[in-house]
Design a protein around this nucleic acid. Structure first.
Length: 198
DNA sequence: CCCTGATTCGC
DNA sequence: GCGAATCAGG
């Protein structure tokens, strides 16, 4: 695949929307996220203010064999002005709909059949952890069983026998089956369990 | 281990 | 110009 005009357009659009390079790569197809990032850099539209990535650090990393001598790079101050007044008969009234307005849900069906995680119910759990859970459960994706993926929190909420049942669905914490908050209540360090009633 | 973007450098 | 490999951070 090559960087055709419209592919670049999609790239620009999605990057502008804050989509990750891998997401863009999937959308475009035929390219890896590396390709996308490389292109982004070549296009000059690099840094976004998005979390989760290496924020342009200090000096360039020096490997074992640095072939980069002190290369003084003059910063091009050229700031292309927008010709708001130039003769431009081609007024395009941008329709709200763009070519790739269609964003098909790429949810892969997961194997299913996984045993459901247990509900610790009213256990002796850190009030903090519980509070956090209540917090995030408001933001929960409320996924159905079929919507769960390997990287969505599989914490069940509610009663399976009612309509009020769903899975958290937030991004899991690393290899865990749950999101960070639910990991907190699922895996008790067995410390706060020092309840010795009786 | 998952993800993210950044950089390098042979092609 | 391209992008895999690698790096670096969360």
């Amino acid at each position: 695949m090559s960087w055709t005009d419209d592919r670049v357009e999609i790239l620009k659009k999605m990057w502008g929307e804050g989509q990750s390079a891998s997401q863009i790569a999937k959308e475009l197809g035929g390219v890896t996220r590396n390709a996308v990032i490389g292109k982004v850099h070549r296009l000059g539209l690099s840094n976004r203010t998005t979390a989760g990535a290496a924020p342009a650090k200090t000096e360039p990393k020096v490997k074992s064999a640095p072939k980069v001598p002190a290369k003084a790079k003059a910063a091009p101050p050229a700031e292309p002005e927008v010709d708001a007044n130039s003769s431009k008969p081609d007024l395009k009234t941008e329709p709200a709909i763009s070519p790739n307005a269609v964003r098909p849900p790429r949810n892969q069906i997961i194997p299913a059949g996984q045993p459901l995680p247990p509900q610790p119910s009213a256990n002796e759990i850190s009030p903090e952890a519980l509070a956090k859970v209540n917090e995030i459960e408001k933001k929960a994706k409320k996924l159905s069983l079929m919507e769960l993926t390997e990287r969505t929190c599989k914490w069940p909420v509610g009663d399976p026998a009612t309509e009020d049942f769903w899975f958290c669905g937030l991004p899991v914490k690393q290899g865990k089956p749950y999101c960070e908050a639910h990991v907190g209540v699922a895996f008790q360090p067995m410390s706060a369990r020092r309840d010795r009633r009786r």
